[in-house]
Nucleic acid binder design. Structure first.
Lengths: 109, 109
DNA sequence: TGGGCTATATCCACCGTGGATATAACCATT
DNA sequence: AATGGTTATATCCACGGTGGATATAGCCCA
């Protein structure tokens, strides 16, 4: 399959980062929350996916942590690159088409 | 990752079948069309995915072909089972949540 | 100072994917 | 009736992503 170059896990990570979840563990919780618990990214998939996204130039490490949060030396912060934003947008638009098709098929309201 | 038990390819096939594409090749064209060419299911992924869905009880072979179409001995027709419809609906709803989240994040309009 | 949660990282076996290859039936044209 | 392009299904292999366990360690509260 082709889509763009994103796996499902990759899209979830990009969406979480776009939604303001700055570091890995926050991404994990975001994905679980936004999916109502249906999607869970285990640590293996999570950190490997982040590293792949960094290698692909869709995500970059950010050395400015969340100013609201208390300092936590363990955390590594990430943000979308321009290419990452574009990839996330493309994939979201593709998904929106799928949802529309599902509506037209009478699968959902 | 968990979602339900569907891979991306699996969902595309279920959606195509729910939309009235009765046989494998029609599924392939539907997926390509509905995605604007962004998603392509090669024959390998396509037929293997169908067989897996049959084995999982989400799809069953239907021996009543499309009455509109001219007879074609090569075609094998398929339709969703009740479980397949439920799985497709669950996945579509999950996708709708992701699209909503993407809107809230300002990724798409 | 002990325990539970937060946070990141790596490893392995398994499974799905992509793409090539093969086969053959269908249909229009010559 | 032969040709060629499209439709249609099927199988194979190497590759890469996934899931889940395991490890390590910093954080925070009692």
């Amino acid at each position: 399959m082709v889509s763009i170059m994103l796996t499902a896990a990759g899209f979830h990570v990009l969406l979480a980062l776009a939604s303001g979840s700055g570091h890995g563990y926050a991404v994990m919780r975001f994905v679980e929350e936004v999916s109502g618990g249906a999607v869970r990214l285990g640590p293996g998939t999570l950190y490997r996916t982040i590293n792949r996204l960094v290698a692909d130039g869709l995500v970059e490490e950010s050395y400015e942590g969340d100013p609201e949060a208390p300092h936590d030396a363990r955390r590594r912060y990430y943000k979308l690159t321009v290419a990452g934003e574009r990839a996330a947008r493309d994939e979201a638009q593709l998904m929106a088409r799928m949802v529309t098709a599902a509506r037209e098929a009478g699968l959902i309201a």
